[in-house]
């Protein structure tokens, strides 16, 4: 049985018992797998934990309805439950209490936005939803407005592996303060206008303007790694579907209109990659077969010898490559014997 419900949440549940029971019965008609005991346990646990933060009955009452409906919807969709160790469960238990003050302002949509975000990140193979929750818990303490919170969430999602959002995040990143940027990127970032009296701090951290410029200037810039001009394998994408990857057979890459596409015998994918992650997104575009344009930024030969201007490096493991493509500061390489796409770039 579920745990004993306490506090102001218990009063609200008591008062709205019939209404909530009715909603559960209705949901149960179309979702036969709905687990009453698990649901009850969740009500008494994470849901009440959030509602009990309300200062009085009236505020708790205003919160309880939308949160109950969200909880029910997530149970119906199988995204929440006793047996779930999912990030959605964790978001309820750790993130919701942290963003409580914002939730009081906007209980109708904010919880749903956060859950959707956690869900979307968790659906991406190389993304890190738990890292996102950790970052957001910390941001909730310093964000001044709901907009600041949600915009920070977007940039944090990019930081946690959603390379697909890179362009959008770079448009927002200018608006975020150095404190929030520090939390998101896990490094000390200070405001550009700081004086020389704080020289020591400036020396150990990044200047926010320079930091943003580095982010925009080089997709392989990672503040947690020492900058380097060396050409290196900065990422990989794909993998055999049978082992949890995305591709049926060894792929080939194709460049079309400044975008990189990965093609296997069944599907075409667009590849998004930077220092924080790589994402493959199924694409309906059939990339046109373009001839390799002369004067590419980075080139590789059959022996695996890579050259970018004066920089060069030998990658024996990429010898006998089957297809290559270069987009701006990245080289994408496929091998006839691998389900992965290897990405070469410079970290600094």
């Amino acid at each position: 049985m579920g745990r004993q419900v306490e506090g102001v949440c218990a009063e609200v549940l008591e008062k709205r018992r019939d209404e909530f029971n009715k909603k559960f019965i209705q949901a149960g008609r179309t979702h036969r797998h709905l687990d009453p005991e698990g649901f009850l346990e969740f009500l008494g646990g994470p849901l009440c934990q959030v509602v009990n933060q309300a200062a009085d009955f009236e505020k708790a009452d205003r919160l309880a309805g939308p949160l109950y409906e969200l909880c029910l919807e997530l149970f119906c969709k199988g995204l929440l439950g006793r047996d779930h160790g999912s990030a959605v469960n964790r978001a309820w238990q750790e993130l919701f209490p942290a963003v409580f003050s914002f939730m009081e302002e906007d209980v109708e949509t904010l919880p749903a936005l956060l859950i959707n975000s956690v869900y979307n990140i968790s659906m991406e193979k190389q993304a890190r939803e738990n890292q996102w929750i950790d970052i957001m818990v910390r941001i909730a303490k310093v964000a001044k407005t709901r907009t600041e919170l949600t915009e920070s969430g977007m940039v944090a999602a990019w930081r946690c592996g959603m390379a697909v959002y890179r362009d959008g995040a770079l448009e927002i990143v200018d608006r975020l303060g150095s404190r929030i940027l520090s939390i998101i990127f896990g490094t000390l970032i200070t405001d550009s206008q700081r004086t020389d009296t704080q020289e020591n701090t400036v020396k150990t951290g990044f200047d926010s303007k320079e930091f943003v410029a580095s982010l925009k200037g080089n997709r392989w810039f990672d503040p947690s790694m020492p900058p380097s001009k060396n050409l290196a394998i900065t990422g990989f994408a794909g993998g055999f579907k049978g082992f949890g990857g995305s591709l049926i057979d060894p792929p080939r890459v194709q460049v079309d209109d400044g975008r990189i596409f990965v093609v296997d015998s069944h599907s075409t994918w667009q590849l998004y990659a930077d220092a924080f992650g790589t994402n493959l997104r199924r694409s309906s575009i059939v990339p046109s077969k373009q001839k390799t344009p002369p004067g590419l930024a980075i080139t590789i030969d059959r022996d695996g010898f890579v050259q970018k201007g004066e920089e060069q490096n030998l990658f024996r493991e990429l010898a006998n490559n089957s297809s290559t493509g270069c987009v701006r500061d990245s080289l994408f390489v496929c091998l006839p014997s691998s389900h992965y796409v290897f990405i070469i770039g410079q970290r600094g």
């Binding site: 859950i115 977007m154 999602a157 362009d167 995040a169 309906s284």
Partner: peptide, 23 residues
Amino acid sequence: KSKSSKSDFDIADLYKGPVSLKD
């Protein structure tokens, strides 16, 4: 329908997902 040839993602999509929003 088959998706349009525009394949760039909007960062606002981060907040669209399984839970239906009032908006």
